[in-house]
Every structure is written in structure tokens, then in C-alpha cells.
């Protein structure tokens, strides 16, 4: 106990007790009659001490009986009630806290479910949009390819036609040139033989 906590009345009472107690003790400490030999606790044969010892036992049972009665009837039930009330109070608080925690958990779970649902929805719509865009892009690319293929095919056709016509012209030009060369060298030329020779030569070079 700190000195600060020592209340004035406690101090006064202590000082008064310390001052009075020796007087009381000395006043009580007069031993009339014959002296006590041996242990006073066992002096049952002593005229005064013996009587006091027996009286002490009787008083003991009376006073202890009173203490037991007061404790059993009033004091201990009162303390027990206070302890029980505190226990109930704490338990009530704990139950409330438990309920609050359960509510919070439920709200949290709901919130999480909502978040998960929203995320799933968002993902679904994103996937949907992506798929749509992909399909559109694919169809566009296909159309483009088809057009390009058609153009390529047309161009190839044109090229083939041009080459064929060019190749056809090559034969007549070659025959004409060969006939002119043969006429110049020999003075006469057999048109049919020249054309045959040119055809054979072209075929040999793979140009027929």
C-alpha cells in the first residue's frame, strides 16, 4: 500500500490503537491469586485458569457457531451472487460478441459472394465480346482472302492467256524469220518444212 493511500482515519485509528492497547493490556495483565505453573494452556487444575479455559471452549463454540451461521446464511451467498452475476455478465458480453461476429461473418460471406458473382459476370461478358470480335475478324479475313484469291486467279488467268498468245506469236515470228533466213541463203524456201523444223526446235527447248 502506498503512503498516499493511507487515509487519515486509518492513521488516526492505528495511532489510537497503539496508544490505548498497552494500557488495556496492562490493565488486563494483573494476575490475582496463585501463580500459574507450567503452560497456562494446560492449567486446567488452576482455580481461575481452569475455569477460563473451560469457559473459552464454550465461548469458542458459541462464537464459531455465530460465524458459521452468518457465513452460511448471508455472507457466502452474497459473495457467490456477486461472482455469479459477474460470470453471467461476462458470458452475456461474450455471447453478444459471438453474435456480432457471426453477423459480421455472414455479411463478409455475402460480400464475397457478390464480388465473385460480379467478377464472373464481368468475365463472361469480356469473353463474349472477345469471341464476337474474333468471329467478326475471322469472317472479314475470310472475305478478304476470298476476294484476293479471286483476283489472284483472274490475274493468273490473264497471265496464262497473255503467255499463250505470246507463245503463239513466237512460233509464227520464228517461222517467218527462219523462212527469210533460208530464202536469203538458198533462194527458195519450203514454208511447210521450215514450220516443221521450227516446231521441232521449239519443242526441243520446251517452248511449244
Amino acid at each position: 500500500m502506498s503512503p498516499r493511500a493511507l487515509k487519515p482515519w486509518v492513521l488516526t485509528a492505528t495511532v489510537a490503537l497503539l496508544a490505548l492497547a498497552p494500557r488495556l493490556a496492562l490493565a488486563a495483565d494483573t494476575h490475582p491469586g496463585e501463580p500459574v505453573t507450567g503452560m497456562p494452556q494446560l492449567a486446567f487444575g488452576h482455580p481461575e485458569q481452569g475455569r477460563y479455559l473451560i469457559a473459552n471452549i464454550v465461548w469458542l463454540f458459541i462464537i464459531f457457531g455465530v460465524l458459521y451461521y452468518v457465513m452460511a446464511q448471508y455472507a457466502l451467498p452474497a459473495v457467490g451472487n456477486v461472482l455469479e452475476a459477474r460470470r453471467a455478465h461476462i458470458e452475456g458480453d461474450l455471447e453478444q460478441a459471438q453474435a456480432a461476429k457471426l453477423r459480421a461473418d455472414a455479411a463478409m460471406a455475402e460480400h464475397q459472394a457478390g464480388t465473385a458473382r460480379a467478377r464472373a459476370e464481368a468475365q463472361a461478358s469480356v469473353a463474349n465480346a472477345a469471341q464476337q470480335a474474333q468471329a467478326e475478324a475471322a469472317s472479314k479475313a475470310e472475305a478478304l482472302n476470298a476476294r484476293l484469291n479471286a483476283q489472284i486467279a483472274a490475274a493468273e488467268e490473264r497471265i496464262t492467256a497473255s503467255r499463250d498468245s505470246a507463245m503463239g506469236a513466237l512460233r509464227s515470228v520464228a517461222a517467218d524469220t527462219a523462212e527469210a533466213l533460208v530464202t536469203r541463203l538458198t533462194g527458195l524456201a519450203d514454208r511447210a518444212a521450215v514450220e516443221q523444223a521450227v516446231g521441232a526446235e521449239l519443242a526441243a527447248r520446251g517452248r511449244a
Binding site: P40, Y52, W59
Partner: peptide, 19 residues
Amino acid sequence: ELTPVLGAVGNAVGFTQST
């Protein structure tokens, strides 16, 4: 040693400092 308190009455009923 037991010594009666409360004077003659205490002495009569054996009311000592122990009591």
C-alpha cells in the same frame, strides 16, 4: 494466560481476552 475482561461480568461468564 487467560485474563478476564469486561470486569466482574466478564469474570463471571469467563469472558477473557481470548474470547
